[in-house]
Simulated assay, not measured.
Amino acid sequence: MKGERHFGGLISLIITTYNRPDALAAVVDACFTQSDRNFEIIIADDGSGEATGATVATLAARAPLPLRHLWQSDQGFRLAMARNRGIASAAGDYLIMLDGDCVPQQDFIARHRALAQPGFMVTGSRILVDQATTAQVLSGQLVLQALGLAQLLRLRRSGAINKAAQLLIKLPDVGRARRRFSYRRIKGCNMAMWRADLEQVNGFDESFKGWGHEDADIVLRLFNAGILRKDGAFATEVFHLWHREAQRDFAASNKTLVLERQRNGTTQAALGLKNGAR
């Protein structure tokens, strides 16, 4: 892919998780099979219980690359803080954010590396997996990242996954840049950015309450700081395992804040890397 010349250094993969050790194991196992091995794994844990700790210890014991577990106490939804702690701990200059229920394809790191370019961040793409197929993955009956063409098409025809073309066609780094801010295709479960750019905007904003729009906020503030976004579709797809929807009590108020920041050109997190709790 065009763009591979941009970055050859260590990538830090920050995987966020909360009390879903079976999904986390499936995700990390897929990370162990990556074609590009020049990366580290940081598990940013938002207060999971002992089962997750035990799972991470088992994974770490057979990890073929560096793996660290950063745990914070469970005081409600504090995703931004978990990510900021991961950023602060990262050894790489380029960071990929991945949710602990999103299984990457085997070329996931390689594809993100190929899109890495100074002055840009990347918002990746996802394939939704239905409840029954997710159960097969979590029981070990199905290894998503190892599926062939016929199996992927069969899953698509049955409705087990919501799209397949994005898994079968890989497009080059052409026409991906967005010159204007847009909410479309912002997926916090799969995004990549330069560490220096995150430090410039004070990282993710820990002042957001509850679930919702903290991913749009980081994209917007980076845009306000002059960092453009690339669309990672048809390159960086992950399999998003089924789960019940999170409570959205604060979604409306969080979006109002993002819209206000769009109007006034805000770049800095109110509570972030420089002044958040650690």
Rank of each mutant, 00 (worst) to 15 (best):
H6C: 09
T33V: 14
R83Y: 11
A90V: 01
A235I: 00
L59W: 00
L155K: 00
L257S: 11
P66F: 12
L65M: 13
K170C: 08
T52N: 05
G175C: 11
Q151W: 03
S35W: 13
A54N: 05
R78V: 00
P66N: 03
Q262L: 14
H112A: 00
P66A: 05
L220D: 10
L138C: 08
A225R: 12
P118L: 00
D197W: 11
I227Y: 05
R83K: 15
Q72G: 07
V28A: 07
V238L: 03
E214Y: 13
E206P: 10
T33Q: 14
A90S: 14
A54R: 06
A146D: 06
A90M: 00
A216L: 11
N162H: 02
D217F: 10
A150L: 04
A114P: 06
I169H: 11
D74N: 05
A252Q: 10
D29R: 14
S139E: 02
H6Y: 13
I43T: 03
R20K: 05
W211R: 03
R62K: 15
N19Y: 05
R221Y: 11
N224F: 12
I42D: 01
W242P: 02
A116Y: 08
P64D: 09
S73T: 03
I41G: 01
A277C: 05
R278E: 02
Q105S: 10
L79M: 15
E40S: 00
D231F: 12
A135V: 13
S182T: 15
Q262Y: 12
K209Q: 15
K187E: 09
G203E: 10
Q75L: 14
W194M: 02
F32Q: 08
A44K: 06
H213M: 14
R154Y: 06
L144T: 03
R157W: 10
G148E: 00
